Simulated scan of single mutants.
Amino acid sequence: MWTKHHKQRHLGRLVTPILAAGFFAYFGYHSFNGDLGLEAAKRFEERRIERLAELDGLLKQRKELEREVALMSDGSLERDILDEKARYALNVSRPDEIVIFK
């Protein structure tokens, strides 16, 4: 009976571990640095906190504007506020006034 003896190749044993290592390296890298990775999550959280601070500032500004509008509404029209806003918008002052710019 004839049998063939094949020389054992060591490369065949390395193919699967090399492919597995490449697979894990690729997905490991993208789990940290990809568009949906851990670093992107940190940047997203930082941007969210910045935008919340910006939102708080805008809400304060809106409340101030709403307060000024309420002072100029028909029911409680205050002449000082109306006079101040008109002078500021038209850039007008009386001769006996001192103008201080902020």
Rank of each mutant, 00 (worst) to 15 (best):
Q61I: 14
T3P: 00
R87Q: 08
L65D: 04
D80V: 03
R51T: 15
V92Q: 12
G12V: 04
K102P: 00
G12E: 11
L14Y: 02
L77H: 03
F24K: 01
H5K: 13
H6N: 08
A25Q: 01
E64T: 12
K42L: 08
R67S: 11
T3E: 06
L36F: 12
M72S: 01
K42A: 08
R48D: 09
R94N: 15
A41L: 12
H6L: 12
L65F: 05
F32G: 04
G57W: 04
L77C: 03
F24D: 03
E50S: 11
G37M: 01
N91K: 14
E39D: 11
E78R: 08
A21V: 06
E39K: 08
T3V: 07
L59H: 09
M72W: 00
L90I: 02
E78F: 00
A21I: 06
M1W: 05
A21K: 05
E68I: 13
K85A: 02
A40N: 00
A70Q: 08
W2A: 09
I81Q: 13
I49E: 09
L90P: 02
E68F: 09
I81F: 14
E54C: 03
A53C: 05
V69A: 10
L58K: 12
R62P: 01
R48I: 14
K85M: 02
H30K: 10
W2I: 15
L19Y: 06
L36K: 13
K60Q: 11
G28V: 00
V69L: 12
V99Y: 00
D74I: 13
E39R: 09
E84C: 04
Q61P: 03
D83T: 12
E50T: 10
E66C: 02
D35P: 07
A20H: 09
E64D: 12
A41E: 11
R47N: 15
F32N: 03
R9I: 08
R13E: 06
R13D: 06
G28C: 01
R48V: 14
L90S: 04
L65A: 15
L55R: 10
R87F: 04
R62H: 10
F23E: 05
D74C: 00
V92G: 03
V99A: 05
